[in-house]
């Protein structure tokens, strides 16, 4: 799924004659095309298997975010930026924070403490384990993956020529 769109036109950014840091390299592109599916799978494995083996949501989310960065470095930042919608990044980062807060606040609404996981078992019969998993999979990992990839694109965009900053109407 990783090399679907960004490799259609790898040199879009340099086409306007402006100085571009991107250099199309067959070696890097081929390497990333092979490695990206594995690193994405490894990130997902760490994320979903973090409760029972080393790793966890932070590491998994960071590796998923790093995979996006790797693709952007190989196939050009601009095509990847156009392929990744701003909505996706914001939903990941803000939604993750909201989900984490929600898991913590629901017990409080019933009079228990913030993030009191055993409460879910007593009240709804949901195992304590799923409370931890919800924080990991729905909370921390999306925040890390979203912020890591978002930081990369916002720093790249901050250094683009000023003429491209017309899209500030959001």
């Amino acid at each position: 799924m990783s090399d679907r769109q960004p490799n259609e036109k790898p040199v879009v950014r340099g086409a306007d004659g402006s100085e571009s840091a991107y250099v199309e390299s067959q070696v890097i592109m081929s390497t990333v095309r092979v490695i990206a599916p594995f690193s994405l799978t490894y990130g997902l494995f760490l994320l979903f298997h973090g409760a029972d083996s080393p790793g966890g949501s932070f590491q998994g989310g960071a590796i998923i975010g790093a995979t996006v960065l790797m693709i952007a470095f190989a196939f050009g930042i601009e095509p990847t930026r156009n392929w990744l919608r701003n909505r996706t990044v914001v939903v990941l980062a803000a939604g993750g924070t909201a989900m984490f807060a929600l898991v913590g606040l629901i017990p409080m609404a019933y009079g228990a403490n913030f993030l009191e996981h055993p409460f879910y078992h007593e009240q709804f019969g949901i195992k304590t384990k799923w409370g931890l998993e919800a924080i990991e999979v729905l909370g921390v990992a999306p925040i890390v993956a979203g912020v890591v990839s978002g930081l990369f694109f916002v720093i790249a965009a901050g250094s683009l020529p000023a003429t491209e900053e017309v899209s500030e109407d959001d």
Partner: peptide, 14 residues
């Protein structure tokens, strides 16, 4: 805060 420092409102181009 990175968005705030760079004076932007979006992470990617929308």
């Amino acid at each position: 805060s990175t968005l705030a420092v760079l004076g932007r409102e979006v992470f990617t181009r929308e």
